[in-house]
Simulated assay, not measured.
Amino acid sequence: MRALGAALAAALAAGTANLCTIWQLTLVNGVVERWTDHDEDIQWGGYTWAATDAYTRTQTMARADMSVITTDMDTGVRTGLDQPDIDAGIYDNARITLWTLDWSASSYEPVELVSGRIGNITIEASGLVKFEFRSLTQQLQIRIGRTIGPACDADLGDTRCGVNLVSYTVTGSATAGTSASLTDSARTEGDGYYTGGRVTPTSGQNAGLEREVQDYTAGVFAVYDPWPYPVAVGDTYTAVAGCDKTDTTCATKFANLPRFRGFPQVPGADVAYSGK
């Protein structure tokens, strides 16, 4: 149950309240954006909440059983959401809070409707941006802890792995490219060397946008998530070798087997089910 301030409760009871929605986005890089569906900017809490009419959302419902609350929000380019920024992942997992506010009485305390994080984001041909809102209870659905399996569960170069990535990081310049791949014909490493690794343009329109390498063959870095812009000839980059998490790769490629974090010798479920 939401607690209402006495003044707002009285205005609602009298039918004199003028309600609108305000919402705040806190991006993972610390940038904060504030918007309202009112037809004019609102001053509240020492901040300006920018007006936009390109906003709708589905019904939001709070439940007492702590189940996950989700709602879809539609917004347009007039909110300042930029497609290259969305493609770059700037809005991924951003914190979002929605309030309802009486715009005609700024002294009234707004009522928080829901708080959570942005989930899936899709962009329609018309420019409409649709993003899924996930309440904080969704975090309770995430499994936390370590599992036993044959693959290493460390990240290449982290403290548990211990590999010095400096020895496995290279730089170069693109000789061709698309939004989904970067080609450097000067590369001499064997096929698969960078598969599962990272490639980051350091110049051009995609500068600083790191991507995971889906496949590396004959100097071509194919990435899972396309860049906002095609890679241009001459764009510089850095690339980090990939690791397939097997003990063989750990030993032969990185000479790091003593710190391997997998359990390839533990029998799997297939052995248990076979009855042997």
Rank of each mutant, 00 (worst) to 15 (best):
I96P: 00
L113C: 03
S126N: 08
R78K: 13
V77E: 10
L81K: 15
T100Q: 07
A94V: 06
I123F: 14
L136C: 00
R78D: 12
V129C: 11
K130D: 03
G116E: 04
T100V: 13
V77D: 09
I142M: 10
N93W: 11
D85Y: 14
A105D: 12
A88E: 06
G127E: 08
L136V: 04
L113S: 01
P110I: 02
Q138Y: 09
L81R: 15
V77W: 11
A88T: 06
D92N: 08
G119Y: 06
I90Q: 09
N93A: 13
F133I: 01
E124M: 12
D87C: 13
G119V: 02
E132T: 06
E112M: 09
I118W: 10
E124L: 15
P84D: 13
R95H: 14
T97I: 13
D87S: 14
D82N: 15
V77I: 11
T122D: 13
F131M: 04
Y108M: 11
N120E: 12
R78E: 12
I142T: 08
Q138F: 07
A94D: 03
D92V: 05
D92W: 06
G116V: 04
A94Y: 08
S115R: 08
T97H: 02
T137N: 00
T137E: 01
T137G: 00
L81E: 15
L136T: 01
L113E: 02
Q141G: 01
S115M: 06
R95L: 11
D102K: 06
D102C: 04
I121A: 09
L81P: 03
L113V: 05
S115L: 06
S107V: 11
Q83W: 15
I142N: 04
W99D: 01
T100P: 00
G89M: 05
I121V: 13
S107L: 10
R78Y: 12
L98N: 07
